[in-house]
Amino acid sequence: MTRARTIWLALFAAVSVLVAYQTVVSAAEQSAQFIAAADVPTVAPGEDVLAGVAVVPLRVRSQDYRRAAFGESWTDDNDAPGGHNGCDTRNDILDRDLVEKTYVAISRCPTAVATGVLHDPYTSLTIPFTRGNQTGAAVQIEHIVPLAYAWDQGARIWTDALRVRFANDPANLVAVQGQANQDKGDKEPALWMPPNEAFHCQYAMQFIAVMRGYGLPVDALSVQPLQQAAHTCPVG
């Protein structure tokens, strides 16, 4: 291969990565709105719920994934209701998703949830929440599109700032039973769906919306589970 051809191919690869990244940034600006457990989306007859989402043959698990690439901890730089209020994303999502809440001021957060009740969308269980290292683990903040899955599907080429934004995006977060969160791990829809089948519609539509909003492709094995779940949505 000539030196000129080698340089041309290197430039082409660099431009391709830049274009892909710019597309992701643009798409992320249109991040999905969170679909609450009580808000059941509708699907039009014949609607392609995966329109605008690329499909790749397989999820190829990366050996270089690290949670720290998405930020060391929760931030206050998010768009949750009441965001930018001194409370980090975890506290904002607890406030959004729990009911019958009481509050306590901690650190810079004047309205951290002290106690509350979660009507868990993943299991349909009612779970009491009390702030604390042990009791607080009963309710966890779950990434609908797992961070490791996003990394494998393309987030590895994002900037650190975009990965932090993704990890703290309320549209990709939901309070759930701790055990359900652990059971899911970083599994894609081909390998895991919520035990509560009544929530499959919301879960699939939110998963798809996040993937679309961030320009991430879904693996082919997850297409059918997502479509089947979306077909449980009411016809709109």
Rank of each mutant, 00 (worst) to 15 (best):
residue 4 A to L: 15
residue 6 T to W: 06
residue 7 I to Q: 14
residue 7 I to F: 10
residue 10 A to M: 06
residue 12 F to G: 10
residue 16 S to C: 11
residue 20 A to T: 12
residue 22 Q to S: 10
residue 24 V to M: 08
residue 24 V to R: 13
residue 26 S to P: 01
residue 26 S to F: 15
residue 27 A to S: 15
residue 30 Q to T: 14
residue 30 Q to Y: 13
residue 32 A to L: 03
residue 32 A to M: 02
residue 38 A to N: 14
residue 38 A to P: 02
residue 40 V to D: 11
residue 40 V to S: 13
residue 44 A to I: 05
residue 45 P to S: 12
residue 46 G to C: 10
residue 47 E to C: 04
residue 48 D to Q: 14
residue 49 V to F: 14
residue 50 L to V: 12
residue 51 A to G: 14
residue 53 V to G: 06
residue 54 A to H: 12
residue 54 A to L: 14
residue 54 A to N: 14
residue 55 V to P: 08
residue 56 V to P: 10
residue 57 P to F: 12
residue 59 R to M: 03
residue 63 Q to S: 15
residue 64 D to H: 13
residue 69 A to G: 06
residue 70 F to D: 11
residue 71 G to K: 13
residue 73 S to G: 10
residue 77 D to T: 08
residue 82 G to E: 13
residue 82 G to Y: 13
residue 86 G to W: 04
residue 87 C to Q: 02
residue 90 R to F: 06
residue 91 N to S: 03
residue 92 D to K: 05
residue 93 I to L: 12
residue 95 D to G: 10
residue 95 D to N: 15
residue 96 R to W: 06
residue 98 L to K: 07
residue 101 K to F: 02
residue 104 V to I: 14
residue 106 I to N: 02
residue 106 I to M: 05
residue 108 R to G: 03
residue 113 V to S: 13
residue 115 T to E: 15
residue 118 L to C: 07
residue 123 T to P: 11
residue 124 S to C: 09
residue 125 L to Y: 09
residue 127 I to G: 12
residue 129 F to S: 11
residue 130 T to D: 03
residue 133 N to E: 13
residue 134 Q to H: 03
residue 134 Q to E: 10
residue 139 V to F: 05
residue 140 Q to F: 09
residue 140 Q to A: 14
residue 144 I to Q: 06
residue 145 V to N: 06
residue 146 P to F: 08
residue 148 A to C: 04
residue 148 A to L: 03
residue 149 Y to S: 11
residue 149 Y to A: 14
residue 150 A to M: 09
residue 151 W to I: 00
residue 155 A to N: 00
residue 162 L to I: 03
residue 163 R to F: 00
residue 167 A to D: 04
residue 171 A to C: 11
residue 174 V to K: 02
residue 178 G to C: 04
residue 178 G to R: 01
residue 178 G to T: 01
residue 180 A to N: 10
residue 181 N to E: 07
residue 184 K to D: 00
residue 185 G to W: 08
residue 187 K to V: 02
residue 187 K to C: 05
residue 188 E to W: 01
residue 189 P to L: 01
residue 190 A to T: 01
residue 195 P to F: 10
residue 196 N to V: 05
residue 196 N to E: 09
residue 197 E to N: 06
residue 197 E to C: 01
residue 199 F to G: 01
residue 200 H to W: 15
residue 202 Q to G: 08
residue 202 Q to D: 07
residue 203 Y to A: 09
residue 203 Y to M: 07
residue 205 M to E: 13
residue 207 F to I: 05
residue 212 R to M: 07
residue 214 Y to G: 04
residue 215 G to P: 05
residue 220 A to N: 06
residue 222 S to A: 11
residue 224 Q to M: 10
residue 232 T to E: 12
residue 233 C to R: 12
residue 234 P to A: 15
residue 235 V to E: 13
residue 236 G to A: 15
